[in-house]
C-alpha cells in the first residue's frame, strides 16, 4: 500500500517550510556549514523569551503552540525560559498543520503530527506560534487556518529560530532568532537535542532537485 505509506523519518521535514530534507533522529548529521552553534541557539531563544515578555506585558494570556516536529521542543524551551525569568507558567502545546497544507497533493500522504492544545483552549488568548525556520510562509498560513478551527484567539504572533527569507506570502515573524540570508536552493537544517540529539543550524548548498 504505497499510498498509505508516508515519507519515512520525520513526517513534516521535507514537506516543511525549512526546505530541508528529512533528518531521522540518530542519523548522521547532514553536511553543511554551521551557522548557529548550540550557544547561539540558546541565546537566541533566551532573547525571544524576553521579547515575548516585553511585547505581551509579562506574558499575561499567552500560550505557545509549537509546529511539529521541531517547533514543539523550541516552544517548550521558550516557555521554560519565561518561567525562569518571571516565575509564570506559560501554557504550551502543539499545532499540527498537515491537514491544512496547500501542497498535500504534491507528495504522498504523510503521517500526522500531534495537536495538543492547553486545557483552557485558545479563545481570547495571545497565541504565539513557534517554528524552526520561516521560509515561504506557507506553513504559517496553514497554521493560521488550523488555529482558526480550534477557536478564536485574541491575537496571533509568530516566533521562529531562523528567518531565511524568500517569502511567498505576505507574512512576517514577530520574533526572530536569526535572520539568515540564503539562496533559494540552499537548504537549512535545524537540529534540536530533543529530536536530533544535538543543537545546531546548518546551511548546505542543496541539490538541484529540491
Amino acid at each position: 500500500m504505497c499510498a498509505l505509506r508516508p515519507q519515512t523519518g520525520h513526517h513534516d521535514t521535507g514537506s516543511h517550510d525549512t526546505g530541508s530534507p528529512p533528518v531521522p533522529p540518530g542519523k548522521p548529521v547532514p553536511p553543511g556549514k554551521e551557522v548557529l552553534s548550540p550557544d547561539e541557539i540558546r541565546r537566541a531563544l533566551t532573547r525571544i523569551a524576553h521579547e515575548i515578555l516585553e511585547r505581551t506585558h509579562g506574558g499575561e494570556g499567552v500560550i505557545l503552540l509549537g509546529i511539529p516536529t521541531r517547533g514543539v521542543p523550541l516552544a517548550r524551551r521558550v516557555a521554560g525560559r519565561i518561567g525562569e525569568f518571571e516565575g509564570v507558567t506559560i501554557p504550551c502545546g502543539s499545532l499540527d498543520v498537515t491537514m491544512h497544507r496547500d501542497d498535500l497533493r504534491l507528495r504522498p500522504a504523510r503521517a500526522l503530527g500531534r495537536t495538543e492544545v492547553p486545557p483552557d483552549g485558545v479563545d481570547g488568548k495571545t497565541v504565539v506560534l513557534v517554528d524552526d525556520v520561516l521560509f515561504s510562509g506557507r506553513t504559517v498560513r496553514a497554521a493560521l487556518d488550523a488555529l482558526n478551527d480550534l477557536g478564536r484567539p485574541r491575537s496571533v504572533q509568530l516566533a521562529v529560530l531562523v528567518d531565511r527569507g524568500h517569502r511567498e506570502l505576505p507574512l512576517r515573524a514577530d520574533y526572530v532568532g536569526k535572520n539568515l540570508p540564503t539562496a533559494q536552493r540552499e537548504v537549512v537544517h535545524v537540529l534540536v537535542t530533543e529530536v536530533d540529539g544535538q543543537d545546531s543550524v546548518l546551511l548546505s548548498p542543496g541539490g538541484g532537485s529540491r
Binding site: 504505497c2 499510498a3 498509505l4 491537514m99 498535500l104 497533493r105 504522498p108 500522504a109 504523510r110
Partner: peptide
C-alpha cells in the same frame, strides 16, 4: 480516506 486521497497519487 486521508491516507489514500490526501497526498499525491501513488507513483506505483
Amino acid at each position: 480516506l486521508y491516507l489514500l486521497l490526501g497526498g499525491a497519487e501513488a507513483a506505483s
